[in-house]
């Protein structure tokens, strides 16, 4: 849903970032307004996942230039947990297994951290169980997964459902979903996409990071961005994704070759 008057939730300007002194992002510009669904597409190594990790505050990534404003405030000055509490959510491409930590307790601690930041009452064990059972329906997840350790022994599809369950509980304002479709069969993809569609609304924004058109058959983006060599090469509507599907990424390489890359400034 594109509304030019909708408030800007996330504003990325000239973002440069590196990991282990290796520059990956070379000036990303992107604006997300409330109600919008954006898709970032691109080849492996184009910087898509780095962008998502930088936004979430992964300690291995260093921002060397540029800025990110989250609802007008400097996002990069915040710890990862502060970003999450304020409503930024990263759905992991490879959700982490944490043996010995109960999924239910993890979900409750996380939900309460977010609720507290919003000024809502924290939920006790019983109230939380009611909430989580209701939200399980968003991803049609078996309650048995609540009693297991976080993601431990979950199949790829179960892990992704667990990610969307977390999103349903945390009610983010900006959800970044990194390759949420990878490793999913058609049924799991439909369920996960259904969950994302259900949670997308006029007050929040979604950033889908994906390789393939097939996720975008299930979730219709308002904007599609093509990323290459650490920046956004082209932006268009959903038809751009179809064009990519049809023409592949080779034209991206040609376009890149015509580009004179600007020197990267390392702070």
């Amino acid at each position: 849903m594109i509304r030019s008057e909708a408030p800007v939730l996330l504003e990325i300007r000239g973002l440069h970032a590196s990991v282990e002194d290796q520059p990956i992002l070379h000036g990303v510009d992107l604006t997300l307004r409330a109600g919008e669904i954006h898709a970032v597409m691109g080849r492996n190594g184009s910087g898509k996942s780095t962008l998502s990790k930088v936004l979430a505050g992964h300690p291995a990534y260093t921002v060397t230039a540029g800025s990110v404003l989250y609802r007008g405030d400097d996002l990069l000055a915040l710890e990862p947990e502060q970003r999450a509490r304020l409503g930024l959510f990263l759905g992991f491409q490879y959700p982490i297994e944490i043996p010995g930590v109960s999924n239910l307790e993890f979900l409750r601690v996380a939900t309460n951290a977010r609720r507290k930041a919003r000024g809502d009452e924290e939920l006790d064990t019983f109230a939380f169980e009611d909430l989580v059972r209701e939200r399980l329906q968003v991803v049609q997840m078996d309650p048995a997964f609540l009693d297991r350790s976080v993601n431990e022994g979950f199949s790829g599809g179960e892990k992704k459902r667990n990610e969307i369950l977390q999103m349903a509980l945390l009610e983010p304002l900006v959800a970044i979903l990194d390759e949420t479709d990878s490793g999913l069969d058609i049924d799991a993809l439909r369920i996960v996409a259904g969950g994302v569609n259900h949670l997308a609304g006029p007050d929040n924004a979604t950033l889908l990071i994906t390789h393939y058109q097939r996720l975008l058959d299930a979730i219709t983006p308002d904007f599609v961005h093509v990323m290459a060599a650490g920046r956004i090469l082209r932006t268009g509507g959903k038809e751009l994704a179809l064009e990519l599907e049809e023409r592949g990424y080779d034209w991206v390489d040609e376009e890149l070759a015509r580009w004179q890359p600007t020197p990267v400034e390392v702070a």
Partner: peptide, 29 residues
């Protein structure tokens, strides 16, 4: 594990609480 810590932090759990959860998880077995 940094990745485990970051995963918990990315869900709003403070670093020290995340470390406690991981330690307890480790011992729980």
């Amino acid at each position: 594990q940094q990745d485990e810590l970051f995963y918990l932090q990315s869900r709003g759990i403070a670093a020290d609480q995340a470390a406690r959860l991981l330690l307890r998880g480790f011992c729980e077995e």
